[in-house]
Computed example of a mutant assay.
Amino acid sequence: METKRKLILTSHIPIRWGDMDAYGHVNNTVYFRYMEQARCEWLEQLGYTVGPVGEGPVIVNASCTFLLPLTYPGTVEVKLFAGHPGRSSIPTHYELRLVGDDTLYATGESKVVWIDTGSGKSAPIPESLRASLQDL
């Protein structure tokens, strides 16, 4: 059974020379940065920020499947999808391609959990965030 996902953001991120490793391709850790950047852009567009007080998002797990190496120069297109939200969490999925190229270079997954930063415990997802995912 395939999980229903909603495309919630497409981000274009330039590949920097320093993103590459000794093998001449983008280092595996940088793929997680590309996914993080897309996730932050999505939340910021909705008016959410990360801060030391109140409530906000954290990642409780993240994975990436590296299909083909990305190399400099280029611009990565990160498509961010969300799955059905739970009480305090949202599953996210990522597809990484190069702008102008339909080839899939990597896919990723992460689980976003809303927390109370004071207690460090999960908190209900804000209603406005939940509403933005209502079609799921």
Rank of each mutant, 00 (worst) to 15 (best):
G56L: 04
R97A: 03
L7G: 10
S119M: 04
A38Y: 00
G24I: 10
L98D: 05
D19S: 09
T103I: 08
M35D: 12
R39A: 02
L133I: 08
F66Q: 00
P52L: 13
T29F: 03
S11G: 12
W114D: 06
Q37Y: 07
G83F: 00
P91A: 08
E95V: 02
A22I: 14
G100C: 08
P85G: 07
P69C: 13
A82W: 04
L70P: 01
D116I: 06
T10G: 07
E77Y: 10
V30N: 05
S11L: 04
L98G: 07
D116T: 11
F32W: 06
S110V: 10
A82K: 02
G47V: 12
V53P: 01
T29P: 06
L80T: 10
G86H: 06
P85A: 04
D116G: 05
S132Q: 10
G56E: 01
Y72Q: 10
E127M: 06
I59K: 06
H25E: 13
T29N: 12
D116Q: 10
V58P: 05
W114P: 02
V58F: 01
L7D: 11
D135P: 00
F81P: 03
R5K: 14
A123E: 11
D21N: 15
E41M: 03
I15R: 14
G51E: 13
P126E: 05
V53R: 15
G86Y: 01
Y72M: 11
L43Y: 14
R16F: 11
G118Y: 00
Y23Q: 15
A123M: 03
V78T: 09
L67H: 10
M35Q: 05
E77R: 08
E2M: 08
L98V: 00
R5W: 07
I15N: 04
S89R: 12
R130Y: 08
N61R: 08
R39N: 07
V58I: 12
I125W: 03
I59P: 05
S132H: 11
S89L: 09
M35W: 00
E109L: 04
F81D: 01
G100W: 01
K111D: 14
P14V: 13
A106K: 03
A62D: 10
M35S: 03
G108R: 02
E2D: 11
T75D: 13
I115K: 07
E95P: 02
T65M: 03
T71P: 04
S88T: 10
H12S: 14
F66V: 06
F66E: 01
R97V: 02
E55L: 01
I115E: 02
G18V: 12
Y72S: 13
S119V: 00
T3C: 02
T71M: 14
T75A: 11
G56D: 05
G108I: 03
D19F: 00
S63W: 00
L46T: 07
A123L: 02
L43G: 06
Y31E: 04
T10S: 15
Y105N: 01
G18K: 15
